[in-house]
Nucleic acid binder design. Structure first.
Length: 728
DNA sequence: TTAGGGTTAG
C-alpha cells in the first residue's frame, strides 16, 4: 500500500528536494523499498546539483546496498564538492563495505583528511564481516597506534576477528582494556565477549558474563546456548534454552541450529524429535540450514528414514553442504551402499557446485572404504576443476591413494604438489607405514623435518606405527624421544599405545609392560588392549591373562577383548578358559564384531561376511572357492584346524575356515577380473592366520597380486610371499 | 554481537 504512494509523493514535492527526500526516507522505512528503487524514485540526475545537501545524501546512503546506484550517488557527491565531508565519507565507506567492495571503502578512508573513531570502526567492521580478519586486525592496530580510542562498537567488531584467528591472549587483554575504560556496559560488546570466551573454551567465564548482563536480547541467549553446544555441553545448552523459553522468548533459526548442534554431542534421540516439532511450530520447515542440521542429527542417531525424508522432501533445493552432510552422515553411520548412491549423484550431475570440503569428504569416504576407482574419479574431477592445487584436497587425495594401497599414485601426487601441509606428509608417511616400508617412512619423516615442517600428533602416531610394522624398535624409540625433546609436542595415550605396540610386537613384552607402569599418563583400556594383542601374537598366555583382568576392570563392555582372550586360550588348548570367557561375554549381552571383507569390482563394492549366504552369486562363489582350495592344496597348502578357536569336530572347523570372508572375497575377485589383474581387498579386522597362508598360495598358483588391507596394515601377496614377511 | 558440511592415525 505504502509502496504505491512513492511516485505520488514525488509529484507532490517536485522542487523542494529536502522535504521530499525526508518524506521518502520515512516512506522507505515503512515500505522496505529496495535501494535501487528508492534511488530511482529520488530521480537524482534530474535535480540540479546544488539543490541536494549533505543530510539528504546521508539519508539516501543509509539504505543503499546496491553497487550501481551507490556509484551514481558517489559521483554526485564528488561533483557537489561534498567529498571532504567526514559524515558523508563514513556513510559512503559503510555502503561500499556492505556491498563487499572493500577496496573502494579503503580508498575513501585513505583520502579522508580527518578520520574519527566511526571511520576506523566502519572499515574494521567491513573487513571483519567479510572474513578478512587479518586485515581487520591490522587496521585496528594502526588505529591504536594513531592514538584513537576505540569505542564499544569498534571492540564488538574486532572481537570476532580475534575469535576466528584464535588469538586468545589479545582478546582477553582487550577485555581488560574494556573494563578500564568502562566500555563493557554495551549489549553488543557483552555478547561478543560471550562468544569470545566460549570459543576459547572458557565456557564458565562466558556464563558469568551472560549472568552479569542487565539487558539481554535474543542474540545474547543464542550466543550462550551456542557456546555450550560448541564446548560439547549439550545438556546445559538445552537447559538454557528452556530458561529462555520461560522468559517468554521464541526460538529463532539460530537458536534451533545451536540446539541441533547440541544434540549432535548428546546420545538422546528424543530431543531431536522435540526440536523437529519446534521447527514445524515456529515455521522453520523451509529453512535449508535448519533442515540440513536436522538431517545430520537423524543420521547421527541412525534414524535413516527420517534423514531421507528431509533430504528428499523437505530440501527441494539442496546446496553442496546438504549433499556433503548426507554423504558423510551415511558413511559414518555405516550405510556404505546408500553413501555410494549419494556419491554417484554428486559426481554424476553438474547441478552441484562441489567445493573443497565436498571433495575432501568424498575422498575420505573412498579412503575409508578402499574404493580406489571412485577415488580416482574424484581426483580427475579435482584436476579439471583446479581444486587439485588445493593443499587440503591434495592431502585428502594422497590419503585416499595411501589407504587404497596405491602408493605409486600417492607418491606421484606427493612429488608434484607444490603446497604440502603437515597432513600431506602424514598421509604419505602413514602410507609407507601401512605397507611395512619403515625405511621410506623414516626417510620421509627426516626430510619433512629438514624442510621445516613441524610434526604434529598424527605425524608421531604414523611414524611410530611405521616403525612398529617394520620391526624397527630402536629407531622408533629414538624418534619418539627426539620429537618430544625438540618440539612442544606432549605425548598422548595414543603415542604410548604405539610404543607399547612397537615393543610388544617385537617380542619385548616385559619392556612394554614396564613402560605401561612407568609412563606419565594413567593407562587406559586401549593401551592394555594393545598389550593383550601382543601377548596373543607372542603366545605369552600367562601375561595375557593378567592383562585381560586389568582390561575387564577398565572396559568390561568391549567384545573385542573377550574374543582376543578366548582365542588366546584356544590357541593354548585351554577349552575351559574359552568356555568361561564365551559364557561371560554372552551373559553381558556382548557380540563379536563380524569380520567383513570388501572388494570393488568395476564401480560396485561387494561386502562378504563369514558364513553369509546373501550374495546373489553365492553358490558360484563357493564352487570357485572349492576349486581354488584344491589347487593350492596340491601346491602344499595345509588347512590348520587349530586356528578355529571353538571346540568343534574337525569337519565343522574346516567348513568355518573355508568360508572366511577374506577367502570368499578373493574367490569372487578371481571370478570377476581378467587373469593377472591385481585383487584389492579390505578387511575390517586383523587377517586370520590361515587366510594369510592361503593368500600366499593363491597369489602363486593364480599368478595374481593380492593387496589386502586389514585393521592394522597392508599385506601384499605376490609369488607366494607376503610383504609383511609374516611379521604383523 | 549469535548459526550449517572439514583431510591425517587407531
Amino acid at each position: 500500500m505504502i509502496r504505491n504512494q512513492i511516485p505520488i509523493a514525488l509529484t507532490r514535492f517536485p522542487p523542494c528536494e529536502k522535504k521530499s527526500l525526508l518524506h521518502l526516507k520515512t516512506l522507505h522505512r515503512q515500505s522496505h523499498f529496495s535501494a535501487p528503487e528508492l534511488c530511482q524514485a529520488t530521480n537524482l540526475n534530474l535535480l540540479p546539483v546544488k539543490t541536494i545537501q549533505s543530510p539528504s545524501y546521508a539519508s539516501i546512503l543509509q539504505g543503499l546496498k546496491a553497487l550501481k546506484p551507490l556509484q551514481q550517488v558517489h559521483t554526485r557527491i564528488i561533483t557537489s564538492g561534498l567529498a571532504q565531508n567526514i559524515f558523508l565519507s563514513n556513510r559512503l565507506m559503510n555502503s561500499y563495505a556492505s556491498c563487499g567492495v572493500l577496496t573502494v571503502a579503503e580508498v575513501i578512508f585513505q583520502s579522508m583528511p580527518s578520520k574519527n573513531v566511526v571511520s576506523w570502526t566502519i572499515l574494521i567492521s567491513g573487513f571483519s564481516k567479510h572474513e578478512h580478519y587479518l586485515e581487520a586486525l591490522e587496521i585496528f592496530r594502526k588505529m591504536m597506534i594513531s592514538g584513537v580510542l576505540p569505542s564499544a562498537v569498534t571492540l564488538a567488531s574486532v572481537f570476532p576477528a580475534f575469535v576466528h584467528l584464535g588469538m586468545i591472549k589479545i582478546g582477553r587483554s582487550l577485555h581488560g582494556f574494556l573494563i578500564r575504560y568502562g566500555l563493557e556496559i554495551n549489549l553488543f560488546v557483552e555478547t561478543s565477549l560471550i562468544d569470545l570466551y566460549s570459543k576459547f573454551g572458557s565456557i564458565g567465564v562466558a556464563r558469568k558474563q551472560f549472568d552479569m548482563m542487565v539487558e539481554k536480547n535474543m542474540v545474547s541467549w543464542n550466543a550462550i546456548i551456542s557456546g555450550y553446544s560448541y564446548n560439547r555441553f549439550g545438556k546445559e545448552a538445552v537447559q538454557l534454552f528452556r530458561m529462555m523459553q520461560r522468559r517468554g522468548l521464541m526460538a529463532d533459526s539460530i537458536t534451533i541450529m545451536s540446539l541441533l548442534a547440541a544434540c549432535m554431542v548428546m546420545v538422546c534421540q528424543q530431543i531431536v524429535g522435540l526440536i523437529h516439532n519446534l521447527i514445524v511450530k515456529n515455521g522453520f520447515s523451509n529453512d535449508m540450514l535448519v533442515n540440513t542440521a536436522l538431517m545430520e542429527n537423524y543420521l547421527k542417531h541412525r534414524c535413516i528414514n527420517d534423514a531421507y525424508q528431509i533430504f528428499r522432501e523437505e530440501l527441494p533445493v539442496k546446496d553442496v553442504v546438504a549433499w556433503t552432510s548426507m554423504l558423510v552422515g551415511l558413511s559414518d553411520a555405516g550405510y556404505g551402499k546408500q553413501a555410494v548412491r549419494i556419491f554417484d549423484e554428486m559426481t554424476g550431475t553438474s547441478n552441484i557446485m562441489l567445493d573443497h570440503v565436498a571433495f575432501m569428504c568424498m575422498l575420505s569416504c573412498c579412503s575409508r572404504s578402499g574404493a580406489l576407482q571412485r577415488g580416482k574419479l574424484v581426483h580427475s574431477i579435482t584436476i579439471k576443476t583446479s581444486f587439485g592445487d588445493d593443499a587440503l584436497v591434495g592431502s585428502a587425495t594422497i590419503d585416499m591413494y595411501s589407504n587404497c594401497g596405491d602408493l605409486e599414485s600417492a607418491e606421484k601426487l606427493f612429488d608434484i604438489l607444490e603446497e604440502k601441509d603437515v597432513v600431506c606428509w602424514n598421509a604419505m608417511i602413514a602410507g609407507y607405514g601401512m605397507q611395512g616400508r619403515g625405511d621410506d617412512a623414516v626417510a620421509l619423516f627426516f626430510q619433512m623435518k629438514c624442510l621445516g615442517v613441524l610434526p604434529d600428533e598424527a605425524t608421531l602416531v604414523s611414524i611410530l606405527c611405521a616403525c612398529s610394522h617394520a620391526g624397527m624398535v630402536d629407531q622408533g624409540i629414538k624418534i619418539f624421544d627426539l620429537t618430544v625433546k625438540e618440539s612442544c609436542l606432549v605425548p598422548t595415550l595414543q603415542h604410548y599405545a604405539c610404543l607399547v605396540d612397537l615393543l610388544g610386537r617385537a617380542g619385548r613384552l616385559y619392556d612394554a609392560y614396564s613402560l605401561i607402569h612407568n609412563m606419565p599418563l594413567e593407562p587406559d583400556a586401549g593401551i592394555y588392549g594393545v598389550m593383550l594383542g601382543a601377548c596373543k601374537v607372542r603366545k605369552n598366555f600367562e601375561l595375557g591373562t593378567i592383562i585381560s583382568q586389568k582390561l575387564f576392570e577398565l572396559d568390561p563392555d568391549d567384545a573385542g577383548y573377550y574374543v582376543l582372550l578366548s582365542n588366546m586360550y584356544a590357541a593354548a588348548g585351554n577349552w575351559e578358559g574359552v568356555k568361561v570367557t564365551r559364557v561371560s561375554m554372552k551373559s553381558k549381552g556382548l557380540k563379536k564384531i563380524p569380520g567383513l571383507s570388501t572388494i570393488e569390482i568395476g564401480r560396485e563394492v561387494h561386502t562378504f561376511m563369514a558364513g553369509d549366504t546373501d550374495h546373489p552369486e553365492y553358490p558360484r562363489i563357493i564352487e570357485a572357492l572349492k576349486r581354488l582350495i584344491t589347487k593350492i592344496e596340491a601346491a602344499g597348502y595345509m588347512l590348520d584346524t587349530r586356528l578355529v578357536f571353538q571346540d568343534l569336530p574337525d569337519d565343522a572347523k574346516r567348513e568355518i575356515i573355508l568360508h572366511h570372508s577374506e577367502k570368499l572375497a578373493i574367490a569372487f575377485g578371481i571370478m570377476n577380473t581378467k587373469p593377472g589383474t591385481t585383487i584389492r581387498i579390505i578387511k575390517n579386522l586383523r587377517i586370520c592366520d590361515d587366510c594369510h597362508i592361503a593368500s600366499k598360495f593363491i597369489s602363486k598358483v593364480e599368478g595374481r597380486e593380492i593387496i589386502m588391507k586389514d585393521a592394522n596394515r597392508f599385506h601384499i601377496f605376490k609369488d607366494g610371499i607376503c610383504s609383511c614377511k609374516d611379521y604383523w
